[in-house]
């Protein structure tokens, strides 16, 4: 179990690294010319690639974030057993739902 979670944490980090860089670069690029929200939405709406890019981003962030939180809770606050699983799953699913809602809002 710990080995699988460790693998999931490392793989999600590997996937996330280029996505974070692209996301940061994109934000800096997008505000250079003073793009409006409407102009950004005109590019993202109906775009399969933006949906795929940010959809994947949200999935890996949810995995990575909830596993990181799980490690912190266990080490720092001594949370163990079912409580640890419930909080970690809750955080992961919460991030996933909120993130996917945000992605849908800009691509649909």
């Amino acid at each position: 179990m710990e080995t699988r979670l460790y693998l999931l944490q490392r793989i999600s980090a590997m996937v996330m690294a280029p996505l974070v860089l692209a996301h940061l670069g994109l934000m800096i690029y997008a505000i250079q010319g003073g793009l409006t929200a409407a102009e950004i939405l005109s590019r993202t709406r109906g775009s399969f690639w933006w949906a795929a890019f940010y959809g994947l981003f949200v999935v890996v962030v949810s995995i990575h974030g909830s596993l990181g939180l799980r490690a912190i809770l266990r080490e720092e606050l001594k949370v163990t057993g079912p409580a640890l699983a419930v909080i970690a799953w809750g955080a992961g699913l919460g991030l996933l739902i909120l993130g996917l809602r945000a992605v849908m809002a800009v691509v649909i």
């Binding site: 179990m1 710990e2 080995t3 979670l5 460790y6 080490e75």
Partner: peptide
């Protein structure tokens, strides 16, 4: 070595 408190900690 791979359970809770094992090498992955």
């Amino acid at each position: 070595v791979s359970g809770p408190g094992g090498c992955h900690s």
